[in-house]
Design a binder for these strands. Structure first.
Length: 349
DNA sequence: GTAACTGCATTGCTGTAAAC
DNA sequence: GTTTACAGCAATGCAGTTAC
């Protein structure tokens, strides 16, 4: 249990606050006040303590501090895929906000495995984190929801909705609005055979995107092409398989909307295999701005959302719930924007 | 099986000294 | 005598370990 290993007979001992107090000739509580910037400390006391701190090379023990405070000043962060640039940006925004507030972030990768969502949530409960930010792979999985209910700390969900969690806020994007803009853009260009490929139907972004997609058709009194809807997964492999299958159809799509940057990879692979060129043979819009979309030749039109800001918002909302037990959970929605690039074109009839 | 102890830092409360 | 500023004591947190 002791971290002062020399007391166990091996490496050099790390000085404790008690030793600093002894060296400075003051009480332990005075050292604590100096270390923590308490206002009721004289300059002379501060000087003596800081001198002892320097002489001994004392560094605060956060484990001991957490024990006394009942707070680890740590936030757990569960992402579905650590290699996804979307989550990298989201994490960046959250980490920077948490850092400014004196909190550390512990990142866990669920590998888009719903069981790991549950395991990571349990691990964070055991670690006594002060709050959790997470992007659930399956927002309806019973075991995961039960584990989240056992977490007695505030939660902020990224783009997911789990009814019944008492202290859970949500940060999301206007997916319906973004999809409506993307669909309108393609409809304006004359496309009618528009394929929508996105994740599982039970996930909130999928439901919202489907809503925006169908509304765009409805507003023009057109029926949306149900045979071109493919809802199943955000994986590249799903995107590739679905595009290969759609292109085999008697009446293939003239335009595709890909629901994620990972799907986009699969979509592009399948299009390349089929010999179709984006922006010339088939129009393509993707969701979320990643380097692939911008650097692709031609650059790909995207539905943009500020994921760094989403991360910042998630952290701000979590800190609100951590600091104020009476604070009510809330939903923050960031706007979406269509960034038009050369991957779409007027349909030649 | 269970009570006592351990690690280490924080904080409420109290005491003391100095200033007015 | 009262107020203010500051310092110190002692209780406290909790999970693992040790002693009985």
């Amino acid at each position: 249990m002791r971290r002062n290993s020399q007391r166990n007979g091996s490496a050099p001992a790390e000085p404790t606050m008690k030793e600093v107090a002894k060296q400075a000739g003051v009480a332990l509580s005075s050292v604590s006040r100096v270390i923590n910037g308490h206002p009721d400390v004289s300059d002379e006391m501060r000087h003596r303590v800081l001198e002892a701190v320097q002489a001994l090379g004392y560094e605060p023990n956060l484990v001991a501090s957490s024990l006394r405070r009942g707070s680890t000043t740590t936030v757990g962060f569960i992402v579905a895929d650590i290699s996804n640039p979307l989550f990298a940006e989201f994490s960046k925004g959250a980490a920077s906000t948490l850092d400014q507030a004196g909190y550390s972030m512990v990142l866990a990768n669920s590998e888009s495995n719903p069981e790991r969502d549950e395991q990571m949530a349990r691990l964070f409960r055991w670690r006594r984190v002060d709050g959790v930010i997470m992007s659930l792979t399956d927002q309806e999985r019973k075991e995961t929801v039960e584990e989240l209910l056992r977490l007695e700390v505030p939660i902020v969900l990224f783009d997911r909705e789990v009814p019944g969690l008492p202290r859970a806020s949500m940060v999301t994007a206007d997916h319906a609005g973004g999809m409506r803009k993307a669909t309108d853009h393609l409809l304006d260009l004359g496309h009618r055979r528009i394929a929508l490929i996105t994740g599982q139907r039970r996930l909130r972004p999928t439901q919202e995107r489907l809503k925006g997609f169908t509304e765009a058709f409805k507003a023009r009194k057109l029926s949306h092409p149900k045979d071109l809807l493919r809802l199943g997964s955000f994986d590249a492999s799903f995107g590739a398989a679905v595009i290969a299958e759609l292109l085999e159809q008697e009446s293939p799509p003239t335009a595709i909307i890909s629901g994620s940057n990972q799907l986009l990879v699969g979509v592009l692979r399948a299009l390349r295999r089929s010999g179709l060129r984006v922006g010339r043979d088939i129009a393509l819009i993707s969701c979320d701005d990643v380097p692939l979309a911008e650097l692709h030749d031609p650059p790909i039109t995207i539905v943009y959302r500020d994921t760094v800001r989403m991360g910042e918002l998630a952290a701000e909302m979590l800190l609100e719930l951590i600091r104020d037990e009476s604070a009510h959970p809330r939903v923050a929605t960031v706007p979406t924007e269509l960034i038009v690039r050369q991957s779409t074109f007027p349909l030649r009839t």
